[in-house]
Amino acid sequence: MSKIAIRTENLTRDFGPVRAVDDLSLEIPAGIVFGFLGPNGSGKTTTIRLLLGLLDPARGRAEVLGFDTQRQADDIRERCGVLLEHAGLYERLSAEDNLELYGRIWHLPADDRKARTKELLTHLGLWERRGEKVAGWSRGMRQKLAVARSLLHRPSLIFLDEPTAGLDPMAAAALRDDLLSLAGLEGVTIFLTTHNLTEAEKLCAMVGVIRAGRLVAVGHPDQLRAKGGAHQAVIFGRGFNEPVLVSLREQPEVAAATLQDGRLVIDLKKEVEIAPLISLLVNSGAQVEEAHKGKATLEGAFLSLMEEEK
């Protein structure tokens, strides 16, 4: 498989006068969880449809797993799994029959279909309820089943379009854990669209931010956080006592230094190296386990990016 799972060059798609995806150029390495962030109507779902070859671009091109989306869409769909905006489950059928159908669609041998169904449903805690019709299931259970369906044929790449949307926090957290563990086990590339930034921070090795069809930022979540407005350093460790805080506050680049939930949060006047500050902490007797520089959260960076683009 190509080391780049997805490559787009100036990908553009219009719906009448509306430009849904605008000049999107992106490279996503294979084997990672990529988060595609953006508000509702920003072009996330259209991008997935373009990448699956379900829609043709107005301009530009895209390659998925080395295949051109316009000329080799069948090859792409052969190798991908999907959980789109709607779970797409047949409610009259049982959970087992839903997986049986997609196992047949992907030509899995009967023995493999059964074994794989058992493996995935057991992992997701649904095996005991496999004979029940999906119509009676909660949204969380349906989403889990749809995740199982997307992984059934061992795809190289899966597209998940807001998989935790509409779930309660417990169900969303459970699904996130399942996704991470399954992705780790299966070694697949995941293209995940979401507007849940906590989710993106927890799951993604790389994120892209899209607004009104345009890619406004791409990189590791830490890189995106650093793109935010106010500069900040968050230090985890022990021994951050008052004398240590006082000596920090005396530094010319430090605007404030406070303890928040056991973490040391340093507000910086400008973007500076924090290594000298860490040295100061260590020399003052504190123990530093972890340090983050930039915006405090991805959410802050995201909101700031949205503001910048307005």
């Binding site: 699956l52 379900l54 069948d74 999907v82 789109l84 997609y102």
Partner: peptide, 14 residues
């Protein structure tokens, strides 16, 4: 109507 069409179309089926 039941929102199953797009997933079916996104499968490998010709």
């Amino acid at each position: 109507e039941r929102n199953t069409l797009e997933t079916l179309l996104a499968s490998r089926l010709p």
